[in-house]
Design a protein around this nucleic acid. Structure first.
Lengths: 128, 128
DNA sequence: CATTCGTGCAACCATGTGATTGCGTGTCGA
DNA sequence: TCGACACGCAATCACATGGTTGCACGAATG
């Protein structure tokens, strides 16, 4: 056995789910670029209501992508990057492993699938 | 200006959306590990119907995560790894940039937020 | 040529979810 | 103390989405 497979910390569903929505990514990005910021301030720059932003922040918080700190009557959010690092690690690892598998198949079958599997645009079969 | 910001190929919504669903990730993983495989065969190992698998494969295909090749009456799917690489690149880049921003804020404010932003578990504020 | 098998498509259903509005509560400043 | 401000919570709504079933069509097989 080459290695016991580092078992890269598989990002929890929450992270995938949180990142799935474009608006939510926008919120996250805004938080990341605005430093500690409140939901209300954030809503000012975004095309959605304060409550919508608050909801997104809630999910992002559960996913560990932001941290909330309440002082007095306002809550400031800060972005966390670890989940992103985990995601990057996962994607890299998965991609690498599958590529290896693909390479083996290519060896066994003659390499026909390599091109298809790694260098074909979106698709070209029953293209609608 | 340090750099014009490499503008890491931002993964399209389709990729995020495709990866958001756990079952779909399972399908993708199965495809990746089973080499060229048909939807029907895939459905045999998964807890959902063939059509469900086919739908997932359809989305994965639109997201560029799998490729389909029809020969005769059966269609075999193969996983593609580029979208995953793009995702990894994006996550890494975003994380790095935000971390830089955080570091600057830490310098300006005294570092109080650093710990909170980079080493606090899920959360700890209005913990429900 | 009839049958069987693998697909794709369409309709349909239940749930989940992004977003809004309205309201109650706690905090800060005058 | 009182009003303004920042939140959090709940109800509601429209729409997207995962999943199923049923059916029709093209390709192998005898």
């Amino acid at each position: 056995m080459p290695e016991p497979v580092p078992r890269s910390a598989e990002p929890p569903d929450l992270v995938f789910a949180a990142l799935a929505d474009a608006t939510r990514r926008q919120v996250l990005r805004a938080v990341a670029e605005s430093g500690p910021v409140t939901a209300t301030a954030l809503a000012g720059d975004l095309p959605v209501s304060r409550q919508a932003v608050a909801k997104h922040l809630g999910l992002l918080r559960e996913a560990g992508l932001v941290t909330a700190e309440r002082t007095g009557r306002e809550t400031r959010f800060v972005a966390r990057t670890e989940p992103l690092d985990d995601l990057a690690a996962w994607a890299t690892e998965a991609g690498r492993r599958w590529d290896d598998r693909l390479a083996k198949l290519a060896g066994r079958f003659g390499g026909a699938y390599v091109g298809i599997a790694t260098h074909t645009p979106p698709n070209r079969v029953t293209e609608r």
